[in-house]
Amino acid sequence: MEVVVVESPDEAAGIVADIYTSLLTRRPDAVLGLATGSTPLPVYKELIRRHREEGLSFARARAFLLDEYVGLPVGHPERYREFIRNELEQHVDFTADAILGPGDLDVPPTEAGGAYEEAIGQAGGVDLQILGIGTDGHLAFNMPMSSLASRTRLKTLTPRTRQDNARFFGGDIGQVPTQCLTQGLGTILDSRHAVMLGFGRGKAQAVREAVEGPLSSRWPASVLQMHPHATIVVDEDAASQLSFVDYYRSTYAGKPAGQGL
């Protein structure tokens, strides 16, 4: 696990976009793992800029989403598939059907997990997975006490999660779906490179537990300690509770020239 501490989300966006650029230059047909929410937005904006101004292409790439609500109709503005369409896909050159979410398969929700795992496997696995971290340490919809070996599956959303997400549904918790499909922690561990972003003081405890705490289902993001190639990019506020922050700074500053993340 490599921890990179930056001044701002915009600085993080440039660093993470460099990872995408390097991968897509080496492997134009790379498989990308895409996250939703506000955390990855600066990265997506930088990727769009590089596509428009520098010719970064996604034309041969494929992508898989981390999670999706169950029960929202196709085209609903709060579907995560729509988020990716609006915030990234329509601004770059992904081909039609290059992006797949766990809710896009023509199977019942109870069967979607296995089918999604099969689709990822048939694509050759995820080369680069971007992640955000919740204040309680969750990754995707793997909430505290999720199995560290879990696979893509149907899950019931907790009342707290539905209440937290009600702001996206006009404040009406009754409009928030009660179930979701999510990649599991074990699925995320299968990615070849996982990049987790964390910004703001509200994420500081979760980042500390994920990076320096014990491996525990209480803090699902701690599973990344087991990932063979995990990069954690956090701003100063999110890094404020880390005990080894000086070590992280010095090792990153001392990386050999040309050695990327």
Rank of each mutant, 00 (worst) to 15 (best):
R49Y: 11
G113T: 05
V16H: 03
A30D: 00
L100G: 10
V3D: 03
Y80P: 04
G101R: 11
V3G: 01
E78H: 11
I15M: 02
S8R: 13
G75N: 12
A30Y: 01
Y44D: 01
S38G: 15
L65P: 11
L105G: 04
L128R: 03
A112K: 11
T39S: 01
A119M: 10
E89V: 12
V5A: 00
F58M: 04
G33L: 02
L32V: 06
Y80T: 13
D97I: 04
A59Y: 08
H91S: 10
G75A: 03
E78S: 13
I15P: 04
P28Q: 05
P102D: 07
D97G: 13
L66P: 06
R85E: 12
R49G: 10
P108M: 10
F64G: 02
S57L: 02
E11N: 08
L32W: 10
Y116G: 06
S8E: 03
V4W: 07
T39G: 05
A96V: 14
R85V: 09
L56K: 04
V74G: 14
V92H: 02
Y116M: 13
R26F: 05
A98D: 10
Y44P: 08
G113V: 00
V31C: 07
Y116E: 07
F58S: 02
E54Q: 14
A13H: 01
L41E: 15
H91F: 07
G125A: 03
G75Q: 13
A63C: 05
I84Q: 04
E7M: 04
L105C: 02
F83C: 06
D18A: 09
G33H: 01
A12K: 06
D127P: 00
V74L: 15
L88E: 05
L100P: 05
G114S: 14
G71Y: 00
E11F: 00
L23P: 03
A115P: 09
R49P: 03
S38F: 13
I120V: 14
Q129E: 14
G71D: 07
R52H: 13
I19K: 12
L105E: 04
D29S: 14
L105W: 09
P28N: 10
T21L: 12
V3H: 02
E68N: 12
D97F: 13
D127T: 06
Q90W: 13
T36E: 11
